[in-house]
Simulated scan of single mutants.
Amino acid sequence: MPSNAPSRPAVSRQRLPLRFAHVVIVGKYHAPGSRKAVDEIAHFLQDEGCVVSLEEQTALNTGLTNFPALSVAAIGAQCDLALVVGGDGTMLGIGRQLARHGVPLVGINQGRLGFITDIAFEDYRDSLRAILHGNFEEDSRALMAASVWRDGRCVFEATALNDVVVNRGGVASMIELRVEVDGHFVANQRADGLIIASSTGSTAYALSAGGPLLHPGIGGWVMVPIAPHTLSNRPVVLPYTCEIAVEIVSGRDASANFDMQSLTSLLHGDRIVVRKSEHALRLLHPSGWSYFDTLRKKLHWNEGG
């Protein structure tokens, strides 16, 4: 006997709209297993409806040819989101370059610590799916614009996300540095060196040298001496609106490095000037992310009894 009940309409399985439609992957391409990880994540993104590209060096070194390869400039012009698969060093390298383009970055950790690449690889599917659809926390990180001046001329420029470090060479002797803040003399310091770190870099070399942890919500730098001759020479927290100048007074083979990736040799009288960059890094984290959760996990707080 035929039923008079109306037939049910077909259920539509329409995708939710994507917040980030075009995603580029930047990989730690020299690490074991990175090719497989990048390829797996790329296909996951495609299944979620994203257009997927690879950063050109990632594509070249992984040998993955089934996705378009983009330069940094092309990423800035075309992509909505950069997905960094690696460690904090990978994030630092690409983050400095993409900050000027305003492209947000998400980090999937395949390194050791992962303070800014904070999504564990085994959790990437749920975390990424939520972020792609707009469920995330955004975190802005200040960058440093650094320059080296010699005889009134700028001879070197670099951008740093973590820190600017002035230190002695391989000889077993201290260097003497004259430090100024906003043109005001602070002190002549004899030490193995001096670290000027951002809040992001406060968990790196500055922490090892006895500096404080600086919450990323604080707009400041931390200035940390390395093995100072005068033990009362302590770390100082400064607003990032100030300009810091460090002059090489004496010592052999002094050098400056910027995020431990750019290096230049220094002469007596050279001045290293650090100020806030006009660009900032946009980091995206899973919803509910907390800076203190990161510290507790990475620094192994609350362990032991």
Rank of each mutant, 00 (worst) to 15 (best):
A142E: 04
G170A: 15
R178I: 02
M144E: 00
Y124D: 00
N162T: 05
L161A: 03
S140T: 13
A120E: 15
N162G: 01
A120D: 15
R141I: 07
I175A: 01
G107R: 01
E122R: 13
D139S: 13
D151V: 10
V171C: 08
G134Q: 08
L113W: 06
L161Y: 01
G134N: 04
R168A: 03
G152Q: 11
R178Y: 04
G170T: 14
E122V: 11
E137H: 15
T159I: 09
L161N: 02
G152C: 10
A158L: 07
A172R: 07
S147E: 12
R178M: 03
G152R: 10
L177W: 00
A146C: 15
C154F: 07
L143Q: 04
G107E: 05
L113K: 06
M144P: 02
F136M: 07
S173T: 12
L177V: 05
F156D: 14
A145W: 07
V166E: 00
A130H: 04
G170W: 09
M174Q: 04
V165Y: 02
R141W: 06
T117Q: 09
S140M: 13
V171G: 08
D118W: 03
D163E: 04
N162C: 03
R125L: 05
I108R: 02
T117I: 10
T117H: 09
L132R: 04
V171M: 11
N162Q: 03
D163L: 03
V155Y: 08
I175H: 00
L177S: 02
I131H: 04
N135T: 14
N135R: 13
D151L: 11
G107S: 10
R150Y: 01
I131E: 00
D163H: 01
V106E: 04
N135Y: 12
G169Y: 12
W149H: 15
R153A: 13
E122P: 06
Q110T: 05
Q110F: 06
M144W: 02
S140E: 11
V106I: 14
V166I: 02
N109Q: 13
S147M: 15
F156A: 15
G114T: 03
V164Q: 06
D139C: 13
G152N: 13
H133T: 09
F115Q: 02
I108L: 08
E138S: 14
D123K: 11
F156C: 11
A160P: 01
D126S: 14
D123C: 14
A172E: 08
L177E: 02
V148L: 14
C154E: 15
I131Y: 04
R141T: 07
C154R: 12
I175W: 01
E176Y: 02
E176N: 06
D126H: 10
S173E: 14
S147N: 12
N167F: 13
D126R: 12
A158H: 07
V164N: 03
I116R: 00
E138W: 09
T117E: 11
L177F: 06
T117W: 08
V155R: 06
D151S: 14
Q110N: 10
D139Q: 13
M144R: 00
W149S: 12
E137M: 13
